[in-house]
Design a protein around this nucleic acid. Structure first.
Lengths: 214, 214
DNA sequence: GTCTATACGCGGATAGAC
DNA sequence: GTCTATCCGCGTATAGAC
C-alpha cells in the first residue's frame, strides 16, 4: 500500500475509537491489535502517535473529564453550583463507567482534570471557605461521585430469586428485583446522598463563618 | 516429583498469597505464573483448586469483605452503627486498595458481601426506615466508602511545585503539598462527608417518621 | 515520517503423563 | 494433585517499504 497522502490516524481518532471500545466492551477488551483493527490499521502504527498504550488510556481518560461542565462555578451560589456540577460529573462518568478506575488515580498531569480541580477548589475558596475545608469538600464530593459511577448498586445483585431465598439472607428476599429498577435505585441513591451532603455543608458553612470551627 | 501425601496447595493459601501480591504490587502484577512461583508450584497446579483466575480474584475479594465488622448492627442505634460500620468498612478496603475496583461489581454471589448487605439493609428496615429509603441509604453509604478507598485524593496530585505553577491553575499553587498531608486530607475528607451524611439522614428520618415524605 | 512485516517474551488456559 | 509441554493472543520493539 502506498503512503497515504492524508494520515489514516490521528491522536483524536485513536482516542475516540479507544473510548468506544472501552464503553461497549470494557477495559479488558482494549488491546492495541483490536484498536488498530477498528481503525483499519496494524497495531504498531499506533506507536507513531502514542509512545505506549498507557498514554492512549491517559488521553482517553482526560477526554472524558474534559466533557464535565464547570461553567456554573462563578455565576451560581456555591451550593447550587456544587449540586449542578456533581450531577454533570456523575452523568459524564456514567457514560464511560469502565474508565472510572483509571480516573481514580487523580488529576496527576492531565490538563482537563487539573482545570476541574482548580475550578472547584477556587470556587469554594472564593465563596469564603477556609482552604482546609475547601480541600476536604472537594475530596468528599469526588469520593461520592466516583463511588456512584464505579459500579451500579442495583446491578450488583443478580436477577434470580433463588439466590437470595433459603433464609441465609433474610432481608434480601426482594434483592433480585433491584436490577429491574436500576435507574430509580442508582439515581435515587445519588440524589439522596447529594442533597444530604450539600445541605449539611450549608449548615457547616454557617458554623464556620460564625467562627465556631475556623 | 511424587504426588505429595499432603497437598501443597489449598484455596486458603492461594487466596492469601494472591492478596499479598495484589496489595504489594497491584492487580496487574498478579499472574498465574507469578502466583504459582510464590507458592513454589507451577501455574497449572492452581487450576486444581480454581477453575479460572477470575475465581481466585473473586475469592480474594470476598476474603476482604469478610473482614468488615458488622456486629454493631443491632446493639447500637442505627446512626451510631452506620458511622462505626462505615469507618471499619473504609479501613478494611484501605488495606487492600488495589482490589476495590473488583469489589465495585457488587455482592453478586459472594457470601460475605451478601451477609454485609443483609446486615445493613436489615438494620435500617428494623429501625423503621421504609424499604425504599433503606435501599438508597445502603447504596449511598457504599458509594461514599468505595469512592474514598478507590484512590487517595491527596496522592492524585504530584509532588512537584513546577507542575502547578505558571498561572494555568491559579488556585492549585499549593497542590504539590497535598501528598505530604495525605492522611489528614483523605481521612479528614472521609470524616467530613461521613458526619455530614449521617447527620443529614437523622434529620431525614424525623421527616419521614412524621409522615411528610413517606 | 507514516505504515507494514515480523519477532520476542509473557499472559491464561488445556491435555496428558505420573 | 502436580508436573511437562503446548496453544493462542497480548503489548512492545525494530527494520524497512514508500
Amino acid at each position: 500500500m502506498p503512503r497515504p497522502s492524508q494520515p489514516l490516524l490521528s491522536r483524536q481518532r485513536i482516542v475516540d475509537v479507544a473510548l468506544h471500545i472501552i464503553d461497549s466492551e470494557g477495559l479488558a477488551a482494549l488491546s492495541t491489535r483490536r484498536l488498530a483493527a477498528e481503525l483499519h490499521v496494524r497495531a504498531p502504527s499506533l506507536y507513531n502517535h502514542f509512545a505506549t498504550k498507557e498514554e492512549i488510556l491517559d488521553a482517553a481518560a482526560d477526554a472524558v473529564i474534559s466533557t464535565v461542565d464547570i461553567s456554573m462555578f462563578g455565576p451560581h451560589e456555591w451550593p447550587d453550583a456544587l449540586r449542578e456540577w456533581a450531577r454533570g460529573y456523575r452523568a459524564a462518568l456514567a457514560q464511560h463507567p469502565h474508565i472510572v478506575p483509571l480516573l481514580a488515580g487523580g488529576p496527576a498531569l492531565r490538563p482537563a482534570a487539573l482545570r476541574l480541580a482548580d475550578a472547584v477548589y477556587g470556587a469554594l475558596v472564593d465563596a469564603g471557605w477556609p482552604r482546609g475545608y475547601a480541600t476536604r469538600i472537594g475530596a468528599t464530593m469526588r469520593y461520592f461521585v466516583f463511588g456512584s459511577t464505579l459500579g451500579s448498586f442495583a446491578l450488583g445483585f443478580v436477577d434470580d430469586p433463588a439466590v437470595y431465598a433459603g433464609g441465609q439472607y433474610p432481608h434480601l428476599t426482594d434483592a433480585h428485583r433491584l436490577r429491574q429498577h436500576r435507574e430509580q435505585v442508582d439515581e435515587g441513591a445519588f440524589e439522596l446522598g447529594l442533597r444530604t451532603l450539600v445541605d449539611g455543608l450549608v449548615r457547616l458553612f454557617d458554623e464556620v463563618a460564625a467562627g465556631a470551627l475556623s
